[in-house]
Amino acid sequence: MDFGNIMLIAVSAILVNNIVLAKFLGLCPFLGVSKKLDASLGMGMAVIFVMTLASAVTWIIYEYFLLPIPKNFIFRFFHLFDPSVTPSMFDLAYLETIAFILVIASLVQLVEMVVQRISPPLYEALGIYLPLITTNCAILGVAELNTMTNHYSFIASVVHGFSAGIGFTLALILMSGIREKLELADVPPSLKGLPIAFMVAGLMSLAFLGFSGLKF
């Protein structure tokens, strides 16, 4: 995996295939937290942090515990006692959804405790957003994209997770800037709130479609 490929993954995840505006992942926090600029900054940072970490951890779980390949740790453990076992007897790939969601949920809990102990100011800034992240489908979605769909290497997975987080934050900050202005606009009563936010998101998604012309 060379540097050019890594850059391609990063630019594609931030702009071309933006996780919110092109892939429709993480819409709930995108619409729920984008009313204030500073709140969306906090949420964005928390998502970047957890998404990068979750990409790394779920990749390790998938490659070393679930896939039926010779480096599978469960296979290696049983191989010590009984040399006749084969990797294909330990095919746990179908458990990947359950494994990932439990890993992500406990990871978020762990991150919350560690951040609270190590850096109280950071906890102040991210604290209230961390519990919300477990049910942010973008985290699980990126983990699935890394392993099941794209079969990325470890480095590529981490870079993809990090840049998808950046893409999420970018969309969230742009959206909150527009919504703060939208408060003052004269909107038809039945379009107030959610519908007009969706319209704005649609226009932003239209603008981001322009990036699909990017060529390297």
Binding site: L21, A22, S190, L191, P195, I196, F198, M199, A201, G202
Partner: peptide, 25 residues
């Protein structure tokens, strides 16, 4: 073509929620 691309999804749900708000009112 726009309607089956991502922006079309945002526009359709915006109009649908708007219509349902109108109906409920």
């Amino acid at each position: 073509l726009l309607m089956i691309l991502p922006p079309g999804g945002f526009f359709s749900i915006a109009i649908l929620i708007g219509l349902s708000n109108l109906l409920q009112k």
